[in-house]
């Protein structure tokens, strides 16, 4: 019998691979070691063959390459068409997507066409005793985690949060590249792309940052905000915010954490001058270590914090910056 296959969709825009695809190859490798499956990557585009070495080095045994001029820029219906045909021919057991804007639009459409199950924004994947994939899905702003499985339909499809799986790269891995011929009957219907405005993010994306320094109304203005940016810079993290700083213009809309903003799960969250209203907390409660700095000892954020520091941030942060600089400096010889 042929080996079962775990597939990873490799997202690319403009010939640049999205990191999440490489992360998923790392996870697929782990799963494949347990089940004895093969790991296959599938990539669509106009000229994407140059990317295959990198994909193989990150863990793919097999790369399916579908090239066609109409696949150069991502469009939902042509992409769904190619992936449907590939799945119907090869019958993968598992098919993983990054939970990016592209993955979140494309994966559900494909799942509905294949009449199979799909789980959303997974934070972990494991096998159960019967060889079904267990898919951990957060809901209610991260307040609950559902374990989803799809026992009777194939492929078992999931989108996975960027930044939660580990890449595993080793140079000189070997893998096969198979070119998939896209016929002239490709479905090219649907909205036309008029323009693509690429805009590099000014700050590190909150959702994938390992460290998030979040500021609230208590920061008081742009001057205090600079301290947060300095701290984030030292720790290689991103700066987030509650709603008031966004309303005041100290922070941008993209930086808001919470019910009407982003959900984050960094390894370290430091909340400064934040009271801890549930609107904000639902967006950060999944963080590994939560530090709260607040002048009010009764601030509700302390109730959901691992480390509580009562005091004025203007007195707490400067010595912390100094201490961290000293430790970082000691590590770098020059």
């Amino acid at each position: 019998m042929e080996k079962s296959q775990i597939w990873v969709f490799m997202e690319q825009r403009g010939g640049v691979l999205h990191e999440v695809g490489l992360e998923l190859l790392g996870k697929a490798r782990d799963l494949a070691e347990v089940s004895g499956s093969a790991v296959a990557a599938i990539i669509l585009g106009a000229e994407v063959a140059p990317l295959t070495d990198r994909i193989i080095n990150h863990g793919a045994d097999l790369v399916l390459v579908a090239e066609h001029p109409a696949l150069e820029t991502y469009r939902l219906l042509p992409y769904t068409d190619v992936l449907t045909r590939a799945c119907r021919e090869h019958h993968p057991s598992v098919l993983l997507f990054g939970a990016t804007r592209m993955g979140v639009e494309l994966a559900p459409r494909l799942a509905a066409r294949l009449k199979t199950g799909l789980s959303a924004h997974c934070i972990d994947l494991q096998w159960d005793a019967n060889g079904n994939l267990l898919q951990m899905v957060p809901g209610w702003g991260g307040g609950v985690v559902a374990t989803i499985r799809c026992p009777e339909h194939r492929p078992q499809m999931a989108t996975v949060m960027p930044g939660v799986m580990q890449k595993c790269e080793s140079s000189g891995r070997s893998g096969r590249v198979i070119t998939w011929t896209v016929g002239d009957d490709l479905d090219v219907s649907g909205p036309k792309v008029l323009e693509i405005c690429r805009e590099e993010p000014k700050t590190r994306a909150l959702e994938t940052a390992e460290v998030v320094i979040a500021g609230g109304w208590g920061i008081g203005g742009p001057e205090g905000w600079k301290l947060l940016e300095e701290l984030a810079g030292l720790l290689g993290g991103a700066v987030g915010a509650t709603r008031p700083p966004v309303d005041e213009g100290w922070a941008s809309e993209e930086q808001m954490i919470g019910q009407s903003g982003k959900t984050i799960r960094p390894r370290l969250y430091i909340g400064v001058g934040i009271s801890g209203m549930s609107h904000h907390v639902v967006g950060m409660d999944g963080s590994e270590l939560v530090v709260a700095i607040n002048s009010d000892p009764k601030a509700p954020l302390f109730e959901v914090a691992d480390i509580c520091i009562t005091g004025d941030f203007r007195e707490i942060l400067p010595p912390l910056l100094e201490e961290l600089r000293r430790r970082l400096g000691a590590k770098q010889p020059h």
Binding site: V144, A146, D285, I307, G311, P318
Partner: peptide
């Protein structure tokens, strides 16, 4: 096609450790 095998309410137990002393 999907089934919910389990559902956990995630109320992480936080340490609530208070750091005291000079800045």
């Amino acid at each position: 096609p999907t089934q919910m095998a389990d559902l956990l309410i995630r109320r992480k137990v936080r340490q609530g450790l208070r750091l005291e002393g000079s800045p």
